[in-house]
Design a protein around this nucleic acid. Sequence first.
DNA 1: TCCGCATGTGCAAGCGCTTACGACAATTCC
DNA 2: GGAATTGTCGTAAGCGCTTGCACATGCGGA
Lengths: 333, 333
Amino acid sequence: MTLEEVARRAGVSTATVSRVLNNAGVVKESTRRKVLEACRELRYHPNLHARSLAGGKSRTLGMIVSNIQNPFFLDIFCSLESVAFQHNYEVVVEHTDYRPTRLVAAVRSMLGRRVAGLAVIVSEMEPSLIEELSASNIPVVFYDVGHPARNITNIKVRYEKGMQRTVEYLYSLGHRRMAFVGHHAGLDPLHERLRAFLDTMGRYCGEVRYTTAVSSDSPAGGRQAAHQLLASGFEPTAILCVNDFMALGVIRELRERGLSIPGDVSVTGFDNIGISEFSCPALTTVNIPRRRIGEMAFEILVQGQSSAMNSEREILIDPELVVRESTGPAPEG
Amino acid sequence: MTLEEVARRAGVSTATVSRVLNNAGVVKESTRRKVLEACRELRYHPNLHARSLAGGKSRTLGMIVSNIQNPFFLDIFCSLESVAFQHNYEVVVEHTDYRPTRLVAAVRSMLGRRVAGLAVIVSEMEPSLIEELSASNIPVVFYDVGHPARNITNIKVRYEKGMQRTVEYLYSLGHRRMAFVGHHAGLDPLHERLRAFLDTMGRYCGEVRYTTAVSSDSPAGGRQAAHQLLASGFEPTAILCVNDFMALGVIRELRERGLSIPGDVSVTGFDNIGISEFSCPALTTVNIPRRRIGEMAFEILVQGQSSAMNSEREILIDPELVVRESTGPAPEG
DNA sequence: TCCGCATGTGCAAGCGCTTACGACAATTCC
DNA sequence: GGAATTGTCGTAAGCGCTTGCACATGCGGA
């Protein structure tokens, strides 16, 4: 089914059909109806590839995330998708599983699609990408990785702040043995979180003992990390997790071992994903405004084109501690 | 950046550039290198729209789901995406929020993309779609909704079986007051689950009292449904949820009210999503093999083209009860 | 009656790519 | 040594759509 067949059927030219389908130009009501009728009869579906090729412009945004199974990323996607949908844009998403090679492939794929803008919400990085994207001339927003450039806006969360607040809070509750659970420590932004933990710990030098464990980004990974942590003989009174997703698994493992939360061990997460409120006990965590990040991304990519295109912007977000049930005073002794 | 510019730069024709980029035809090693070099220098990214328009064939699969935030759907997507990726296919996903109009739009969008195959994993339906998709001539797999046709394969789960097993199990534990928590009861497949509950209940006529509640498909929805259930004065000893996602919220609400699970109330879910194991207590649920469904979908769409295209297939899946910690003997009295 | 101007359509040139098909060299064979 | 291969590459015709431009009407006013 092509435009031409529809045109023939309706007894008009392809130009007219195109105009009807795009509400462009002025078309007599009677011919418009004829055309629409023909479309229906022929079950015509315009070829979107041809359309974007001929049209040259795109109403598609691209989004790349590290792990779409982690609600943190999924929420940002849904938020972006939601505003995009309202503005008659669509967004295609790709995920990288934290692998730089897949990230590069995903970016190329997005550029090949000629997206109108690209949001890169990942934790891994490939230095050459910045240059490649900057040269591509499409608006780009990075989260966490990368730095601002002509067409690149950066959204950054002050993890150190969140981490610091968490640690101080726990310290004030009497915790002196802490552990950090993370994943993919080799990747920059994730390593940064671990650094934030270590740095903060450094300030309590001598007073607080601590250790770290890494596994994969999932509840199962969190569980494994907790297992490994406890197997080491170290008995933390508080475990800080790099994100809520893993914290779920940590909690599970602790409970399995008969440890009460927060009675024996306090647990904190990061992100404040939806289910963190439904876990048991409800998770103390650090909020990252995912909804707002998605909305900001849209504005930057679509509306801020003129304004943002020539201003190397960086947006900083201050995360806030959300105290719920998974933390409490350190146990005696 | 176009093929032509690359060709000019490399001192060859566009045909040759195309050939090296697609590993098609035989190209002398030296010219191949020249071309690749030119691509790199010019930061050339082939226009995928032009490619698929000219090529005519597509290595893209489409997938439509009702609620991508529900891990059930997300898991199937990830499974499909994973096998697709291994076979050098890509999959674009769209979600409908359980709205038939969005479903129709999504299908049209997918047809416009000229996907090589389409998986429709939704709970809402629009009758005309079957005909439209059947006429489209691309391989389609439906989950739950729709019926088999020339190019349409149907994957169906015997919910009644799962429901029946759950109810029998609970009955054997002494439960005589049960409730069902669902969402979007107006939609066929979801209503079917409710029907399965009611039908099974009917067989215990007189012996078992029961009621139902509906809300939205999310933990928050589950919570609200539980709230509404308990506010009605009815005191179930077991609550069966239409899926695990909502069950999380139900559990939360019960705990909030000081009810112990399963001491006071047993709770069951459906789907066996990953976090159902990490909830607390771990959820008794009915397993639906999402991984396998994703893999089957791929085979049907891509590999089974010749075989499946002309055989109106329907695949039935028997779900199994997975007993964990959220269910137990009914309380005395 | 003729001109000017909306208003509706059609023509045709692309958009950037793939892919027959054929041209041309460099081999190879008898 | 000439013909038949074989290996490389260029030419050009689309793929299905958008869109600038020209053209054909019908109208009112001079």
